[in-house]
Simulated assay, not measured.
Amino acid sequence: MKKQMIFSVLCLLVGFVSLATAQQPPNTLTDVEKQNGWKLLFDGVSSSGWKSACKDGFPEKGWTLKDGTIGVAEMGGHEHIVGGDIVTKDQFNAFDLRFEFKLAPGGNSGLKYFVTRSEGDKGAVIGLEYQILDDKLHPDAKQGRDGNRTQASLYDLIKANKQEQFVNPPGQWNTGRIVVYPNNHVEHYLNGLKVLEYERGSPAFRELVANSKYKGFAHFGEAPKGRILLQDHGNAVSFRSIKIKALN
């Protein structure tokens, strides 16, 4: 009975979050959000505030701006062959970041944070990654360890503890959220529900890194500040309503 009540409450909470999202037009801020320090990272029409992760300027090909979204087209999963990843021009330390994403069936993408390019990475640009994935169709969901490459996970480090009934399927919009507190406590959310938390730089975090694909990068994920990155993984994905609030 108690579990049923908890499930009902969760359903109501997710319903309220979905309703609030539906009532607010994409790529806008309410007056209350503006008063509380929220800023749009994507205005719905331009690439202002974004640049290539590896070059100056915004990619001339690969990324599209249409119908209030920013995204990449399907390229068969071949990474970086057209546009490549893009990053914010600004850097951030402690923040509350919210965004909406829509992934094509079988797709793979991600949103990375604390991206610095200081690790000497070659190929894919590294950073702490909020995984965006079709868990049912993409093989990456079964790789890594214990599901730590599934949707909303901290990629290759911590599995997202999510309930599938609260996850919208590919082709529909989902809402992601990442909160990084000034004390380096981090939380991932999916559609309003918290799915994981960890402490940047803690012994437990460093042990996870030491057993991951990032083990060769010193101080991975521990930079005092960095950029936000949208990944070009060669699969169709769209983003909108990307907004951030600095936490001091």
Rank of each mutant, 00 (worst) to 15 (best):
A20M: 07
K89T: 14
E33M: 02
V82A: 10
F58A: 06
L65D: 09
T88P: 06
G57S: 11
Q35G: 04
C54K: 13
T30I: 05
F92T: 08
Q35M: 13
D121C: 10
L40S: 05
E60P: 00
K55A: 13
D90W: 01
H80E: 14
D56N: 15
K51N: 03
I81C: 12
D96P: 04
A20T: 02
T21W: 14
F114T: 00
K34T: 06
A20V: 04
S52F: 01
K34R: 15
N93D: 15
D85C: 09
I81D: 14
F99W: 12
P26R: 13
L65Y: 03
D56T: 13
L29S: 06
V32A: 15
S118Q: 15
G123S: 08
K102S: 08
P105W: 03
E60M: 12
D56W: 00
W63S: 05
K39M: 09
N27R: 08
E100G: 05
K34P: 00
G76T: 04
M75H: 14
K61C: 00
H80F: 07
G120W: 12
A53V: 04
M75Q: 15
Q35Y: 00
H78N: 14
Q35R: 14
F101G: 01
M75Y: 10
Y113P: 02
F42W: 02
Q91N: 13
N36C: 02
G84H: 08
R117W: 00
G77T: 08
G83L: 09
W63A: 06
D67R: 11
Q24P: 00
G44A: 06
T28E: 13
L65S: 05
Q91A: 15
F95C: 11
K34Y: 00
G120C: 12
S109P: 02
T28C: 10
H78T: 14
V115Y: 04
F58Q: 07
E79I: 03
